[in-house]
Nucleic acid binder design. Structure first.
Lengths: 259, 259
DNA sequence: CGAACAATTGAACCGATTCAAGATGCGTGG
DNA sequence: CCACGCATCTTGAATCGGTTCAATTGTTCG
């Protein structure tokens, strides 16, 4: 997402709507002039507050609006064929969710606030209508959707548990950084159980791996407080160039295998 | 380089352009009238023939066109971080591929023909331009993209090898049926190695499971010739309500464990 | 303080891969 | 038409990663 903003983003009248989230990025393309912009501002729903565990929309409901996180964190949860809950994503401030609801015209997942969060939204029909005479807006929506296709594609590779966890940490780091937060210290407000569910493993494994990463000096973790200490090593683990388990084994014999 | 040469191809009349594939479905919405339709027909590239193993486009190339299969089969392959090839999809006649290339404006996978195939395509910029004054067309593209987001999402659940293989067979069956082919007998022209790669397992496992399914009377398979004999049982396996392995074990002691 | 739940830790187990042979199919040339 | 050689597929035994089961520690909150 090239956040090309050659000029500043002052627009004082605009600001108290939803200037920090991607919905406004979609809706306010660089070259959008006054008239279209005001139209958009009118349909952009400003922030609504949700408490911990409150649902924003539910799976099965008719789709009408796209959502974006302003503050806090939102998880989207779906039921797999066996009826078990499966977390398909944690959404950070600035990110858009519910894009998969367009085609079936109903929400496929239920969105819950983790902790207290604020969320803004836009009516999709209106957005479509606007897009049909704002080519740049249309283009940005195409891009956002295509990006989501890509995002989900790359998850299909089968990785070891430690690769998945390392990748998960790095993904969060990248996304926090993109929105202006620290990329080395972060607060994992979601419970271990949720992380495990999202990564398709069992909380025990998450626990063991966090510990192993900590002991290796790659991260430091205490409860919800996570710090990345060695990004390059963490990256090496994520792509499979390095394994904690092998390392631990090699502690006995002093030989370290170098790829 | 995709051998897309508009002038080399005869294209005798409008009608035998690409009436059987989804690109024409996208491009010819139900309520599209003469003028727009003719515009579309002009930019829809008619069929091009590819031999076994020939590439249609390559990962890294600049994105310009969307593609659809007319006949045969196409696989899209990407390189994971370790540099190993990973097949992210087999595309049947009528299906569109390369949707994930829109956002990065480059192809993320390489498309190969399996056996001989015919493929048609359309220039994306032109399509966008048309969509911007054909709201129904725009809507259909949104839908197609959203559908692709959904498609890839649902693959994220972690399944046992037998669930994945059963699901793969059923998915092929459904897709063949949707395009007017038999949903009980099909020809698996792709090698076992490719199936295994796509399902993230090892050819040995594919082999063992095909045999097990055959022995249980769920399918019949000989080389590339596959027949589904018991759809409901196959479905039960795919969703995890039934397991061949458990069944085989219970052959010894006659007790059948129920949940 | 103590109950209830979340997280951690250890030991046994199971599914899928790995490694190592064998079997089968298939195009080529004798 | 058969023999050869190569690639794909199949089959079997050992191994490994992650789960399961079970018990303990830690944390939160009435």
């Amino acid at each position: 997402m090239p956040s090309v903003k050659p000029k500043d983003v002052p627009a004082p009248s605009v600001q108290n709507k939803c200037s920090t989230c991607s919905l406004s990025k979609i809706c306010i393309p660089d070259h959008l002039s006054g008239a279209g912009l005001e139209e958009l501002e009118q349909v952009l729903e400003s922030s609504i507050l949700y408490q911990n565990g409150e649902s924003i929309f539910s799976a099965g409901q008719q789709f009408d609006r796209l959502y974006a996180v302003k503050s806090g964190m939102v998880k989207t949860v779906r039921l797999d064929p066996e009826g078990k809950e499966s977390i398909d994503g944690f959404h950070l401030p600035g990110e858009v969710f519910a894009l998969d609801a367009i085609y079936p015209v109903k929400y496929l997942s239920t969105a819950y606030s983790i902790g207290t969060s604020t969320v803004c939204s836009i009516d999709f029909e209106t957005l479509e209508h606007l897009a049909s005479h704002l080519p740049r807006l249309q283009h940005q929506i195409f891009q956002l959707l295509s990006q989501a296709v890509h995002k989900t594609h790359e998850f299909q590779v089968e990785l070891s548990a430690e690769q998945k966890l390392a990748g998960f940490i790095l993904d969060l780091s990248r996304r926090f950084k993109m929105r202006g937060y620290s990329d080395t210290r972060m607060n994992l407000i979601m419970p271990r159980r949720d992380i495990a569910n999202h990564l398709k493993m069992v909380p025990e494994t998450v626990s063991r791996l966090f510990k192993a990463l900590h002991q290796q000096g790659v991260i430091s973790i205490d409860r919800t407080d996570l710090a990345i200490l060695n990004t390059s090593k963490l990256t090496a683990i994520a792509v499979g160039d390095y394994s904690i388990r092998r390392a631990n084994r090699n502690d006995h014999d002093d030989v370290v295998k170098s790829a």
